[in-house]
Design a binder for these strands. Structure first.
Lengths: 138, 138
DNA sequence: CTAAGTGCAAAATGTTTGCATACTT
DNA sequence: AAGTATGCAAACATTTTGCACTTAG
């Protein structure tokens, strides 16, 4: 919802490049900062946040809000909507905090069911299943 | 999680009483504080947060995280309310903020599927489906 | 040259925590 | 009496913002 004119900056390129290497993994804004710092690149955190926000708007990455007191997670999606973009669901363990990534046909049924029967258009990118994971059940 | 409430305090009663009057509406911790302040009751915000947290654990209310930078929303569910405690699912409209309660056999399948196939024990009390409601799709 | 992006540090926000006091049982 | 809950304020963590400076177009 901001300006339409966008500059291609060195920082933006580096950020996108890094995100691409993290396909299928959830990373936080801080993860990005830390990684870049290690590489001696060091992009200001404000810039990281601003660019991430912008990339979300552009649909290049998605943002997940897992919990009120956890940092937001981002994940590379890319321009083509394939793979995770359509079919990824997330489970968050209430005990250990682990985030589980699920690609499952059956779960896709949920979205269709909700739409068909309840006229609700599910946003699977944002929806998180809370519960207890395998290991924590022991 | 940790300690279970054992004592019945004045503050807790007032809080629950207020929450009950807000069935079907989502309110924030701050809403609670503000309301009580107006009534000259004034419960400390730390207490409000602590009690809300515990009421969530007890399943009396649900907590919804709508956005990273918005406060968490709470809603009264109640223990004895029409079997909701076991089978109720929630859909939250990302546009109008409306909260939809669903009692649905098919949705119950989700929990079973997750457990059977993915060994994840779903907490349906806490899980919220995000998406766009009927009306907002127009 | 102009508009947009950057980086720093400071502010804003929502929530949690330490600790002494008050209350429940 | 023993163990919790409360309330205040200070601490926290994440994210945003103000502003001077740099850079892309």
């Amino acid at each position: 919802m901001e300006t339409h004119i966008k500059y291609k900056t060195k920082q933006r390129d580096i950020l996108i490049q890094y995100l691409e290497t993290k396909k299928g993994v959830h990373i936080t804004a801080n993860d990005v900062c830390e990684f870049l710092k290690k590489d001696g690149i060091a992009i200001g955190q404000a810039t990281v946040y601003r660019q991430l926000e912008r990339l979300v708007d552009e649909g290049v990455i998605s943002k997940y809000i897992i919990d009120a007191n956890s940092p937001a997670c981002f994940e590379y999606i890319g321009l083509e909507s394939h793979g995770c973009a359509e079919t990824c669901f997330h489970c968050k363990c209430e005990k250990c905090g682990k985030l589980i990534h699920l690609h499952c046909e059956e779960l896709n049924e949920i979205g269709e069911h909700l739409f068909r029967e309840h006229k609700f258009k599910l946003n699977s990118m944002r929806t998180v299943f809370y519960g207890v994971c395998d290991e924590c059940q022991k």
